[in-house]
Design a protein around this nucleic acid. Sequence first.
DNA 1: CTCCTTCCATCAATAATAATGATGAAATAT
DNA 2: ATATTTCATCATTATTATTGATGGAAGGAG
Lengths: 289, 289
Amino acid sequence: MDIGDLVVFKAIAKEQSVTKAAHSLNYVQSNVTMRLKRLEKELGTPLFHRNARGMTLTSSGKTLVGYADRLLSLMTEAKQAMQGDEPRGPLTIGAIETAAAVRLPAYLTSFMRRFPAVDLTFLSGTTESLIQDVLHHRVDGAFVTGPVDHPEIDTFLFCEEELVLISDQEHSPLESFQDIHARTLVTLQAGCMFRRRVEQWLAAEGIYPKKHVEFSTLEGLIGCVKSGLGVALFARAYIEHAARGEGVHYYEIPDAFSHVSTLFICRKDEHRSKALVEWIAAIEQKKEC
Amino acid sequence: MDIGDLVVFKAIAKEQSVTKAAHSLNYVQSNVTMRLKRLEKELGTPLFHRNARGMTLTSSGKTLVGYADRLLSLMTEAKQAMQGDEPRGPLTIGAIETAAAVRLPAYLTSFMRRFPAVDLTFLSGTTESLIQDVLHHRVDGAFVTGPVDHPEIDTFLFCEEELVLISDQEHSPLESFQDIHARTLVTLQAGCMFRRRVEQWLAAEGIYPKKHVEFSTLEGLIGCVKSGLGVALFARAYIEHAARGEGVHYYEIPDAFSHVSTLFICRKDEHRSKALVEWIAAIEQKKEC
DNA sequence: CTCCTTCCATCAATAATAATGATGAAATAT
DNA sequence: ATATTTCATCATTATTATTGATGGAAGGAG
């Protein structure tokens, strides 16, 4: 069943005449007749009564008018959904745990409020896995730890984090970083930039923690630090946010290792959906403030 | 936006590959590529990411999948609505007042229960106007007073009515039909078979009523007879039905004028909708009982 | 690293389909 | 009766869809 035939059919039904329908469609009469015949043949039922003065719908024809209307309006809706200026449709964003936790929620809420037709999905991963996700189109973009330098990827600075060393308040405060020798180091799983940074720093300082425990979630990690399991490197903003800092000591570490940038990345070359364009625009606008 | 293109698009989305989609559709690969390109051009947005190993949906593509599903299933539904064995769609039936009043309601109720997908519409008229309505497709069929003899029309006996003369009970009962000379004759509007029959009969008897009042509805007519306005010719079944006979005398008239058949008529040659075929079948079945 | 395979895009040629314009037949209105 | 209006049919032309062959780009295997 061809859509064009349905348009022709509707015109005939409206004009109650093949000739008039042909005029209104800027077709020749015989063409309209042929298309109607094809439609009737395909459906196996006459759609019009042929009167001497024109055409009137049969029972089947009346039924088809309803379906034709629905089909054509659904098709129009589909086109508008694809072409409309308003962003809509799915937008899948990846984020490392740390970014997802503190800075994103507020941003995300305002975006969803502004573009309610966008169907936002989030998933988390490590910087490395997210870069692969972006390259393979598994996500439209992702928040990762900088720097990222890849010929296929565009980067946008989202925020800068300062890493601090955290420990619990039950143990006596650390006198110097050398005290870490006697403590357990708690990190997220391999691949997390926080973990790589802490390893770089400790290697530079010549410090080797007594033990190493690996966690997969941020909340789990911070809970363990609080309960005295060990020390960890963490984003200051996150610690200071929402009273998560209670029961925790924190210590600044050297600048060279403390500064971590969170970037939003997406593929460079590709066509970007309206939703993604707006998402990036919102990030750049936020940076200005 | 061509439906065929949407089918091709869905195949590509399902197979995540132009080549595989071409195979599954029994097309050549280049053809599938072309159709996809056309669709993307028409919608002004890429629908797939081109990876080296195949195709993955873009954001717009994901949106379109939803619409394509809806469109295709609506189209299938439309076809089934047109071709399905179950009667459905509009069925417009005309009836003279007398038939519509007594005999039809029960029949109609059972039909609607049996074929809920049929959208039944009723309208009333005179035998003459209804014959024209049938010929001009304004109704699919009609109940009229027989006999009907027209080369384009098929007839089916619906029921036989016996006409009786009715008068009120306030006046003294009629001693003979000659008493009608002194009474008012109440009829339906011109064109009603009851009226024609009463005129034929009275002419044959040489009776000329004092006055003549014309009504347009049955209930109005019978109400007026009851209140003593005059006499009328009426179907016995209707008078005896649902206590309408209270307050009314009735008198049999000669056989030659008393028997009236109610026929169902419809166009002879035309394609008949499933609903109409069932409607006629039900009438013929009823006759057997 | 190179070859091999797999995938999609492009293009020219052909097959299929749609649109046209002319003609005919049937039914009304003049 | 005649002119007019209607839709159907048909041959012709224009357009579009499909094919088959070729090329380039990206992984995977050796």
